[in-house]
Amino acid sequence: MSQLNARTEPRFVRYFLITIALAFFALFLVLPLVCVFHNALSKGWVVYFDALKHPDAIAAMRMTLMTALVVVPMNLVFGVAAAWAISKFDFRGKGLLLSLIDLPLSVSPVIAGLIFILLFGAQGFLGPWLIAHNIRIVFAWPAIVLATLFVTVPMVARELIPIMKSQGTEEEEAALTLGASAWKTFWLVSVPNLRWGILYGVILCNARAMGEFGAVSVVSGHIRGLTNTMPLHVEILYNEYQSAAAFAVASLLAMLAIVTLIAKSIVEAHIRQGQK
């Protein structure tokens, strides 16, 4: 046996495995995507754009954007703080902290919504107080933000921690030894090193925040034109048998997913280059 084929398989095995992988890929990943755009345009461009221009659709887009605009910066600040503490210092209980950060990923989105109903709902823990003071949280924008925030808390931190860890602490130590202040070191040394990682985390967090369905569905109250986000608007249209309109709005979210994936592969390439 020659050295060359010690690490590979006969040609027919290779082709067989590639065919299986591509068939699975086409069936489970490509077809659903094609299906979205096919159905969105099934009644022509006029219906497509009418669905997007509908006041309820516009309101849903605004709701989704407003939510992401609050959630993503908050989780970015959290992600940077968490990554700084975890990757630059050695302390007791780090493993526990890491698991707690990942916790929201293993909680069903429906449960993520449920907890805010239990906290702020009319029968909830703080419900009577909120009603007495005329503050609306559940079935309104604040609850949508809270539920989305819960679900996306780990998104930035998870991306930043491994990158910061691999960078070590030498550059910051050098800057501090040379007399730079703590904030100056952070802004001029750490942040520039992290810029691709930050971008990466923000992209993933944003995609998840804009697309969250289950958690938001529990707390939003589905008030059309008021508390509907884009995914909820898609659900309503679809359940009303307005398939083309539902898929038209869905196609925007699918495009967001594609842009996310493209941005992600560009950023990943940069991170890999940076590590070399």
Partner: peptide, 17 residues
């Protein structure tokens, strides 16, 4: 790149498709 598609695509969109 497309392997991450199910994570990037909002679940409601995946559901109706």
């Amino acid at each position: 790149a497309m392997v991450d598609f199910p994570l990037a695509l909002p679940t409601a969109v995946a559901g109706i498709a």
